[in-house]
Amino acid sequence: MTDPVLYNYDLDIDCYTVRMIAGCLGIALELRNVDMFPGNEHLSPEMLALNPQGRLPVLVEDSLVLTQPLSIILHLAETRCPEHPLLPTDPGIGARMLDWMTFAAREMGVAGAARATAMLGAPGDLDALRAQARRALRLVDDHLTLQGFKGLGFVAGPEVTLADLMLFPPFALSRDFGIDHDAFPALRNWARRVRKTKGFSTMPGIPDYH
């Protein structure tokens, strides 16, 4: 199998999510860097032909083109390392993982929008986006608080899964759009645990030290 190609911009939150998780899964990617900001290269005719949504990341593997972090991550994991411990074998934990991955893609997507507005010149109402992102982060903080009373350290169960790795970037980068970590004690301690995942990597804005 040849390495899948990831059209990537290093400072994009979703590109980081895919790079970091691929690293944790031990999957090599061939990166094609796209000058998203300030170059707007993701909106070039060539890139729009690949992904008419005008977004990164894009994964290309032979004739397969995937444009959503959730589907990219699941496809890579299921086809290249289905036995990996980041994929739970327990069906209940697996279902919870998918639930929180969907939450990360949908409810938490607002964090990426808030960050793009704050940092990368994207249009948007930053105050409104920030308020929505705070609400989404609180839902995870509340959930992790309750998980803690059950002795469970991660969103789907006792061990780290793909869902935790998908939820990590919006929290780790929240200062980029004006939300400090002070108000999220459960997320703060969870993030320290998530960072211990084998193969974990950072991006600019996330310190190597913690």
Binding site: D180, H181, D182, P185, R188, N189, R192
Partner: peptide, 14 residues
Amino acid sequence: ALSDAITAGSSAGA
């Protein structure tokens, strides 16, 4: 903060 929220080897702002 709550005592158990600041684990050994960690820091937080308040």
